[in-house]
Amino acid sequence: MTLTAQVKKRLVTIALVAPASLWLFVFLVLPFIAIIVFAFGERGPVGGYQPAFTFEQFANLGARAAAFVNTLVLAPIGAAACLLVAYPVAYYLAIKASPQRRLLLVSLVVVPFWTSLLVRTYAWMYILGARGIPHLLEYIGFDNVRLLNTPGAVLLGIVYGYLPLMIMPIYVSLEKLDRRLLEASADLGAHPISTFFGVTLPLSLPGVMTGIALVTILLLGEYLIPQLLGGGKVFFIGNALVDLFLQSRNWPFGSAIAVTLVAVVVVVLLVAMRIAWRIAGTRQVDLV
């Protein structure tokens, strides 16, 4: 390759990468630097930020320990519940559905994304509220049943909201599965159940891990669903951040919590990738 060709190639690369890099730099890296600076500052006398260099905010993280614990418990439970519901759907779409119907069904999975999660969660508030299902239950003799603002309502909202994000990666990995392996397993006398656990499930694990990582990371920052379907009684890191920035206006402490949350997300992601790589052996895993 001549020098000019090399320069040209490099320029093309820069031109292709520049828009996304610039976007991320301005809207992700710079704000994150600001948050790190804030995290070492002090709360002003009536709130906000006051320049300082102190580790006080990080030393105080224990004051929001409950929010971290709630979040770190909810996120994996929510992801596991999503997985239990999503796997059979993805399996049906990839293995059982006829190719003609598959396209229609896969597009139906993403239809909910046409409306904002906020609007859909509000819809659940009315379905679960006293004028919704509990009202129908009154006709068969169950008075004053309360569904809204319960842990079950939060879990339902989470599974509903994040299901497509779990179905899609599992569907993709199952669709790539070589059907001859399933036939070979059957020819060698394996029961369909042992074929599933011995062949299908292990080969779809990269998709499963991608789905779990995707849903878990998003759940770590969840605010809306516990607020609307949990009545604000369950306190997650997202809720703690909203209060610290908007109500008590303790920006430095809120920043320290945000930085810690990002660190937790990075650790979760690294662990998930490591597990996925180990499961997938030497194969490349298409993680997020």
Binding site: R43, A63, G232, K233, A240, D243, Q247, S248, N250
Partner: peptide, 13 residues
């Protein structure tokens, strides 16, 4: 700030 922290403890309890 004392009242703000009290509220946070109440909500996260």
């Amino acid at each position: 700030p004392g009242r703000a922290e009290l509220m946070a403890r109440f909500k996260s309890a």
